[in-house]
């Protein structure tokens, strides 16, 4: 019981530290956030914080992982019960774009230190980014496109990143109708499966 209690306490504190880190980043950005700031914000000592996260690297990594888990759950809810591939793709894009635009820490980083995000999505940093995007999105596409899921996941991630970094003012990606149109016109035709023999039979 003591061990279980300890774990729960630890989990609660970890969550509080991650919230504190997110709030610090939302206020001043990544490069200006220190472990001392986060400890103060979380109301714990630097030593306690260090027992949970051995530096800003592991701390931000845990924050990213928590966000990925949250986005994963939202994607599951948004795509559940959808029948058509176009609707699934549109739900993935709209959910992802909303997640980014509503994320106070991400939007601060985009505004004050965009190169932190840019270096994560272009050139050398991009391999890790797209690997994560595929791992996050593809499971929600498997039922619809099978082995093409990773390819489609990456394409949707490219479209989202491009429109978030260079918005089309006349057709913003935050508009679900724009997303539906893009997906139906340009994405889905590249992923429709060959007609199966059952279909052509009466």
């Amino acid at each position: 019981m003591a061990a279980l209690g300890g774990t729960t306490m630890g989990t609660v504190l970890s969550a509080r530290i991650l919230d504190a880190a997110r709030d610090c980043v939302a206020r001043v950005g990544v490069s200006k956030t220190t472990l001392d700031d986060v400890a103060r914000e979380a109301g714990c000592s630097r030593a306690t914080l260090y027992r949970h996260f051995a530096g800003t690297g592991p701390l931000f990594e845990a924050l990213i992982q928590r966000d990925l888990d949250r986005l994963d759950r939202r994607l599951a809810v948004a795509t559940a019960d959808l029948v058509y591939l176009a609707d699934v793709c549109a739900a993935v894009l709209t959910t992802g774009v909303e997640f980014v635009l509503d994320h106070a820490a991400l939007t601060t980083v985009l505004a004050v230190e965009p190169t932190v995000l840019l270096s994560a999505v272009s050139f050398d940093g991009s391999e890790l980014f797209f690997a994560r995007a595929r791992a996050l999105i593809a499971p929600h596409l498997w039922a619809h496109v099978g082995s093409d899921a990773e390819r489609l996941a990456e394409l949707l991630a490219r479209i989202a990143i491009s429109h978030l970094s260079s918005p089309r003012t006349e057709a913003p990606i935050s508009d679900p109708e724009v997303v539906q149109h893009l997906v139906r016109t340009y994405v889905v035709p590249g992923f429709v499966r060959e007609p199966t023999s059952e279909r052509v039979q009466p």
Partner: peptide, 19 residues
């Protein structure tokens, strides 16, 4: 619109070929 869409994917692929 098709030109814009193609331009976006081309730029994305040049900087980050992904898989």
């Amino acid at each position: 619109e098709a030109g814009d869409h193609l331009g976006r994917l081309i730029l994305s692929l040049i900087g980050a070929p992904g898989r």
